[in-house]
């Protein structure tokens, strides 16, 4: 059903995109600042999310990829909520680039989550 090579590829893609996103937030990219300002979370929330994204990315590249995919999925869910409730689908006239990235990461981490569900701590055995 799931292929080990595909799972590894998905882990790699998701990790790279998450690291890029985290780096932009850390470096104070004006777009990120504006988004988090609109959510009322700048700068503390921006750094917090960056740290979580970085942690998830590193876990995705480690033997604890299952845990990483859970955390990344949670972050992506949060981002979807942000776009749906506050930001809208097109942010700063980027014609949906941001939401496109989001969907790519979400698909990747969901794939990892499904293929590695048995490895999730505490609940893996029941899945």
């Amino acid at each position: 059903m799931t292929h080990p090579m595909l799972t590894r590829a998905a882990q790699g893609i998701a990790a790279v995109l998450l690291l890029m996103a985290a780096a932009m937030k850390f470096m104070g990219d004006p777009g990120s600042i504006e988004i988090f300002a609109r959510l009322g979370m700048d700068p503390a929330g921006r750094y917090l999310i960056a740290v979580v994204e970085m942690t998830a990315a590193m876990l995705l590249l480690s033997p604890f990829a299952a845990l990483g995919s859970v955390i990344a999925t949670a972050v992506m869910c949060g981002a979807i909520i942000a776009h749906v409730t506050e930001l809208g689908l097109v942010v700063n006239n980027d014609s949906g680039r941001l939401i496109g990235m989001l969907v790519v990461v979400l698909v990747c981490v969901a794939y990892v989550l499904v293929s590695r569900r048995k490895e999730i701590p505490f609940v893996g055995e029941t899945l």
Binding site: G40, C77, G78
Partner: peptide, 21 residues
């Protein structure tokens, strides 16, 4: 928590996503 995240502060959504999963 979803409502609190929408109406009060987006920070509530940290709990929302955990509960959602």
């Amino acid at each position: 928590f979803g409502a609190a995240g929408y109406l009060v502060s987006f920070y509530f959504h940290f709990v929302t996503v955990a509960l959602f999963l």
